[in-house]
Structures are given as structure tokens and as C-alpha cells.
Simulated scan of single mutants.
Amino acid sequence: MKAFIFDMDGVIIDSEPLHNKIVRSILAENNIIVTNEEFNKFTGMASTAVFDIFIKQNNLPYTPEQLSKRQMDKLKNYIVEHHVKPIEGIIPLIQKLHDKNIPLAIASSSPLDMIEFTTKKFGINEYFTTLISGEDLPHSKPAPDIYLKTAKMLDIAPSDCVALEDSKNGSIAAKSAGMYCIGFANPNSGNQDLSAANIIVNKITDIDIDKL
């Protein structure tokens, strides 16, 4: 392992249920009802990609960027008002990797300003050398684009990178990029198929970086 790459939603912050609730509420305003089970398949995808699907299917008079901004504004307000904390064990893991001089990056489907907001809110922005948003890429997870770009930005071969993911789409993206993938079975991320991952952990504290 020469680099460690984190997904953000469902890995650093337990935000998947919040994304789910907020996106579905925005869709419901437009008379589009989506069940939790139906929505789980979109976990890990960029919100612009998700909104693009529903905009095209329902001929909505918005752009994906407009709806994504509404979603992120609502999410930021919720995080601040409810004092949302990092996922248990994630800060010590980041600190341990940093202490071993392992380059760290975030490869998230969230917009870059949301990634920056979250890392600053949790006081961990100084640990990361690279922050990459999937919204800046033509193909969202499960395509490998975001992980290939992150490895390129780190100047480290994908085969020397470890990725931490909580979703089916994310784990497929990491593996398709040629990385070693740790699947985090976060129950709040829905019933995700993490079979693409090399290993699956139920708690962040189960990750032993000395074995990577």
C-alpha cells in the first residue's frame, strides 16, 4: 500500500440516509415517489447523475446541477443544526495512516464544495493531499474514472492504492480501477452488495493497516 483513498458518504460521514431522504423529498415535490429499496441502487453515484435520470424520465424543468445544489444546501444545514459526527473509528484510522506517511485522498461522488465542507467541519482537511469529486467527471461510479483520476493526481499506480467504500457502485469502481478495496458494511447505506471488495468489515476499527 502506497496510498489510501476514502469514499466520503457512508465512510467518513454517515450521510447516505440523509442523501436518500433529501433527494426523495425533492423528487416528491415533483410528484415522483421512490421507495427506499428502489433508491438503494443509486447509492454511491453522483447526485447530478441521479437527478439526471429522473429529470429525463419525467421531463422536469430543472438541470441536474440545480437540484444537486438544493440537495447539498439542505444537507449542510442538517449537518450543522444536528451536530453530525464522523463515523466511529474513521478519525483514528486517518490519523494512523497519516502518522505512517501514507498519502491520503478522498474520491467522493459529492460535489467538491461538499467534500471541503465536511473535511473542514470534522477538522481533517489537513490530512488529505487530494480531494476529487465525481461530479467533475463524465462517468459516475460504478465507472472507475474517479479512482483512476485520484491515482493519477497522487502519482501512484492504482495497484498500489487501497480504497475504502460502503456501496456496490463504489466497490465496483475501485476494483475496476485495479485497486485493493475494503468494503465497509454500513447498515445505514442500505443492503449493499460489497462482493466486489477484497475484504468486508463491519466496523472501521476492524481495519488493520499493518496487513495492507
Rank of each mutant, 00 (worst) to 15 (best):
K2Y: 07
A3W: 06
F4T: 08
F4V: 11
F6R: 00
D7M: 06
M8G: 01
M8Q: 07
D9F: 08
S15I: 08
P17G: 07
L18D: 12
K21Q: 15
V23T: 15
V23C: 14
V23H: 11
R24E: 07
I26H: 02
N30C: 05
I32W: 09
I33N: 13
V34F: 04
E37D: 14
F39L: 08
G44N: 05
G44S: 08
T48Y: 07
A49N: 13
V50K: 03
F51G: 07
Q57S: 12
Q57C: 10
N59R: 12
L67K: 02
S68I: 10
K69S: 12
Q71W: 10
M72K: 11
L75P: 12
V80G: 09
H82K: 15
P86S: 06
I87V: 06
G89K: 04
G89Q: 07
I90T: 15
P92W: 04
I94C: 03
I94L: 04
Q95T: 13
Q95V: 13
L97A: 03
L97P: 07
H98V: 09
H98I: 05
D99K: 14
N101A: 13
P103E: 00
L104W: 04
L104P: 04
I106P: 10
A107P: 02
S108E: 04
S109G: 15
P111K: 03
D113W: 08
D113P: 10
I115G: 03
E116T: 14
T118K: 03
F122K: 02
E126Q: 14
F128P: 02
F128T: 05
T129M: 14
S133V: 05
S133E: 05
E135H: 03
D136T: 15
L137Y: 06
P138S: 07
K141H: 07
K141R: 06
A143D: 15
D145H: 06
I146H: 04
M153F: 13
I156T: 04
S159W: 12
V162N: 02
V162P: 08
L164R: 03
E165K: 01
E165R: 00
E165S: 02
D166A: 06
S167Q: 02
G170K: 00
S171Q: 07
S171F: 02
A173E: 00
S176W: 01
Y180F: 11
C181D: 01
A185N: 14
P187A: 00
N188L: 09
G190M: 03
N191G: 09
Q192E: 05
L194Q: 02
L194K: 05
S195E: 10
A197Q: 01
N198T: 11
I199N: 00
V201P: 08
K203F: 04
T205Y: 10
T205L: 08
D206Y: 10
D206S: 09
D208W: 05
D210N: 13
K211M: 12
